[in-house]
Nucleic acid binder design. Structure first.
Lengths: 154, 154
DNA sequence: TTTAAAATGTAGCATAGGCTACAAAAAAGC
DNA sequence: GCTTTTTTGTAGCCTATGCTACATTTTAAA
């Protein structure tokens, strides 16, 4: 092993190290809520377009089995985002609806931003699905400003 | 339950449904490799800057316990991305080094793109950590073109 | 050289999110 | 109204990623 003294490193632990750890921490926690966000947005979609959101439809749209969907719906209920009645579909709580709206707006903004910098339409939709969960409010605001400038100048 | 006939939906399953499922599928698989990408990039960093990458350092930088880091390092080895000798640190295989280089280039490009559209420096670094794993090669190429245009015109 | 500290590794536990297989209830069709 | 199909739910298993607690080994210090 190389001794620390030989490396001529800063003697005190650099603050950049903790900062880096925080970045990863943040990315991990964003990922934890990503699945819930996807479900909430999809349920809201289904409720508006079809009038109901059934576990089977949710599962098919997400590309998972119904067992997986039901398990996650249980988690949504536990976290106060959704409610469900047997054979009566899934509904969102007030909190769930608010989250859905935020997620939807964010998704649109991310897709628009990607399109604006030249990403092909289909690719923008594809990539946005994963990207959106990691875009902070600060970045989102910057996206909105950028798009506004683009539209004005065009 | 609302009967399908009452909803006046398209009789055949829309292809958009399968497409949506594929988007989620892709985002999920991207997430599965995200952790490995982070480790590989960090190990490469440590090897270049400190000459060695020890589990303890990796853990501290990622903000996890050493037990967690060691477990993931075991997975890296299983997947052929890294090697390690007891008390001699972790090293990357050829494949691991190539992955690290791709990840690093992608990270830089994502940060630059975020900066270019007006995201504050610190926020760009923070968000890029989560975003980068979901940016496809197609989008990456678009980012590069966009940045080139920006630089030329400025 | 002997002891203390740090690093490494292992074991066992939890949660999340996948899956298949089985069971039960509701809806649809005859 | 009875039968079949669809939908829903449960149980049990797997992997990944966290964690704490304990054991071991190496490094550093006295």
């Amino acid at each position: 092993m190389i001794k620390k003294a030989e490396l001529a490193e800063p003697p005190v632990e650099m603050p950049g190290e903790a900062a880096q750890a925080q970045r990863f921490e943040k990315a991990r926690s964003a990922q934890a809520s990503a699945v819930l966000e996807d479900y909430v947005e999809l349920i809201d979609d289904l409720l508006m377009s079809a009038g109901e959101a059934r576990p089977t439809d949710i599962a098919r749209r997400l590309g998972v089995t119904h067992a997986t969907a039901i398990k996650t719906i249980t988690r949504l209920k536990r976290e106060g985002l959704a409610t469900s009645k047997l054979y009566r579909g899934v509904f969102l709580t007030q909190e769930g609806r608010e989250l859905a709206e935020r997620v939807r707006a964010r998704h649109r903004l991310v897709v628009d931003l990607l399109r604006a910098v030249g990403v092909p339409e289909q690719c923008a939709e594809l990539d946005a699905e994963g990207i959106e969960h990691h875009v902070s409010d600060t970045a989102l605001a910057a996206f909105a400003r950028f798009l506004k400038r683009q539209n004005v100048s065009s």
